[in-house]
Design a binder for these strands. Sequence first.
DNA 1: GTAGAAAATGTAAGCGCATACAAAACAAAA
DNA 2: TTTTGTTTTGTATGCGCTTACATTTTCTAC
Lengths: 341, 341
Amino acid sequence: MVDEAEKQPTQLDIARKAGVSTATVSRVLNGSPLVKPALRARVEAVIEQLGYYPHAAARALASNRTFTLGAVVPTLNNAIFAACTNAFEREIQASNYTLLLAVSNYDLGAEEVLVRRLLERGVEGLLLIGNAHSEAVYELLARTRTNYVNTWAWEPQLQLPNIGFSNRRAGAALADHLVGLGHRRIGLVSGIAEGNDRVRERAIGVRERLAAHGLALEEAATTEIRYSVREGRRVLGEFVEAGTLPTALICGNDVIALGVLLEAMERKIPVPEALSITGFDNLPLTEHIRPALTTIDVPASAMGHLAARAILSAIGDGVPVASRELEAPLLVRETTAPPAA
Amino acid sequence: MVDEAEKQPTQLDIARKAGVSTATVSRVLNGSPLVKPALRARVEAVIEQLGYYPHAAARALASNRTFTLGAVVPTLNNAIFAACTNAFEREIQASNYTLLLAVSNYDLGAEEVLVRRLLERGVEGLLLIGNAHSEAVYELLARTRTNYVNTWAWEPQLQLPNIGFSNRRAGAALADHLVGLGHRRIGLVSGIAEGNDRVRERAIGVRERLAAHGLALEEAATTEIRYSVREGRRVLGEFVEAGTLPTALICGNDVIALGVLLEAMERKIPVPEALSITGFDNLPLTEHIRPALTTIDVPASAMGHLAARAILSAIGDGVPVASRELEAPLLVRETTAPPAA
DNA sequence: GTAGAAAATGTAAGCGCATACAAAACAAAA
DNA sequence: TTTTGTTTTGTATGCGCTTACATTTTCTAC
């Protein structure tokens, strides 16, 4: 059945075998309504018989449409980005679009070359994470008039297409919650701020609210680490051993928080009695673990879905991508309580 | 700066402005060694000045190379597949390839249309999960002579390009471990077997080894559920309430195992004294939680990296993709112990 | 029946690029 | 100088498809 030197059949092969022109073949392929049912059936039979499928590059070249969308995410090793990407893909897949995915590893420079690469590939739209991107990226996007949306962010003053939430307000909510509980000595174990506006915004939110209450972060209990359980554990240990452990620790995400929590448990530090802990993301596990983690519920899947819809309708209607703010509510659970003393 | 009706410049624009032919432009773009340095510099200057970048579809059409690879995974909402995909992307990115990613949602029928879609897009290679794919997929792959590799599986008798591990042996290792500990009443809470050869193989491995010891699974404590913490908890509860709880539960993956473990703790069932639990995947968290989870260490990232390298070198050398077996060792931790009675 | 309009199909021109081949420029040898 | 060989550049074709336009067929109204 499989001939060795067999080439993929083209529309011309179909046309010949069906005794029609390539235009007609193209029309049945594109569902044009002006092909007579009988002819259409004949052509489709040949297509089926020859196992023909269209050549996307040729199609793209001729029609100037690729039916691909791109996404550049920092990593897939963070469940929250994976979930967003998954939702995005599912949504565009339903509209017969294909996803070109690139991972920047939190590097804005790398992101730039990846965005360029996706643009070369002719993506009709792009999903990005956060508002912090290189100038070159923004220039490229503007010059090529590519539809894109920055998820994970809501900063209307920036006038960027955002489908996300306010990291600053989320950070503020965390700070307010802890201060409201009576905490005065609060530390922050955030992710790496370099090239990451979400991290920075959250920290600003925290600091602002603390300042509003006449407080400040305990700098001896404030640091930046990679998102890993192990790092979270290490940092908690360091604070304990340095004697700088505050009464509450705001963690950059749930993974860090889980590390901090598990290490605290290991060291018999009662949570939340002796130490309150907050996370960020609301990973599925966090509500089941004991004590259940107080955290921010990040609408990761929703951002993926909505970003896809927004881009697709922008493409369809020729209008710019519409921004949209989503909620990222504080989920008060069991790892936060008034400080002991 | 941004002209409204501005079209992307083409090689012809570059050629004219630099006073050369399009062939020369093409040559500098492709790093051909036979362009004189001076001329090359002149052309590159114009490229830079006009912000030109090549049109991938046109390039693909003319050269019959797309520099894209595809991957079809069941979901990204499983950290283990996300990690594999991440590694795959990082590896091909380094070779200037771009990833076309599709999510099948564990549906072999959906997978078939996605594979076809990627093939239309001209992917030069494909990463798939498991060996169970529709006949049509295998036919398509064979007919188009596309390089592909089935990860997550090692079944040499099938003569398929595998870069993975033996799910059957992993299941066997789990069973052996528990039987060796003295367990006689063992249940299995696996993932959904429909369309999932990994799940089936693991179950076969378990059953075979049990049979070899003159045992069988406790069918009243054996079921299939979706991969979620909540489902794991629910099932544990059901077993307890039905009075069918065995002394050991083999879980389909770590997420299920975590659910089972957390529910057991909630119900004050001592783990591992009253109930041994095993997981599968070795999620980062599982070694930190207490009791630490006994599980199988799945080389997810390694599979992604190695699959990428295998496909790329198959493309480069024109040889078929080389299979390779990886280890998926049993990690004995704290959730397994001899049964109480 | 027929003219004219509408519907169906065909013809052919690119889309932007790579590349085989032709031509020109240059270098070395005579 | 001329000749020959080598390096560099240009010319022109076609990759497989869509689509404007031309042509043919079918339908409608008379």
